[in-house]
């Protein structure tokens, strides 16, 4: 097995590897990524502490900004693209995200309903037997 990455057109590239670029272009990619990430982070911190925005929209906005920033990281730092040489990497990511979504979403949903239908544990413990 060899270590050349870009010779085999048929293979997906390694996660984290980029298509062949010059060093300048690669550095530029990181600069753009850093700029976008800092911008999104600043927006998040600003929105969380401000009174200028309609309050109930803040949680939604924070989640959206977080997802956007994760996307920025994936594209500019981890070099995940939609290209055909990334199919396996993206499929694995999609499977992982599906599981994360199911575990977090399912847990929150189930646990919320448990709390609806059961008195809190400390009250159960104090019930007369």
């Amino acid at each position: 097995m060899s270590d050349q990455t870009h010779m085999h057109v048929e293979h997906d590239i390694a996660p984290g590897d980029e298509e062949q670029h010059s060093v300048r272009e690669r550095i530029l990619g990181y600069v753009v990524g850093l700029g976008l990430a800092l911008l999104l982070t600043a927006t998040s911190f600003f929105i969380a502490g401000t009174n200028l925005v309609w309050q109930p929209s803040i949680p939604v906005a924070l989640i959206v900004l977080a997802i956007a920033q994760m996307g920025v990281h994936l594209v500019f730092f981890l070099h995940i693209t939609t290209g055909p040489d990334n199919t396996n990497n993206v499929l694995a990511l999609a499977f992982g995200l599906l599981v994360v979504f199911l575990v977090v979403g399912g847990t929150v949903w189930i646990m919320a309903h448990l709390n609806q239908n059961m008195p809190p544990m400390d009250q159960i413990m104090q019930m007369p037997r």
Partner: peptide, 27 residues
Amino acid sequence: APKRIVTAYGFWVFLLSDIVMFSCFFA
């Protein structure tokens, strides 16, 4: 596939499993 791709892909899969672990703590 060449070794570099194999190694990185294996680590990528590990990272996804790590993220699933974090998702439990988030939950």
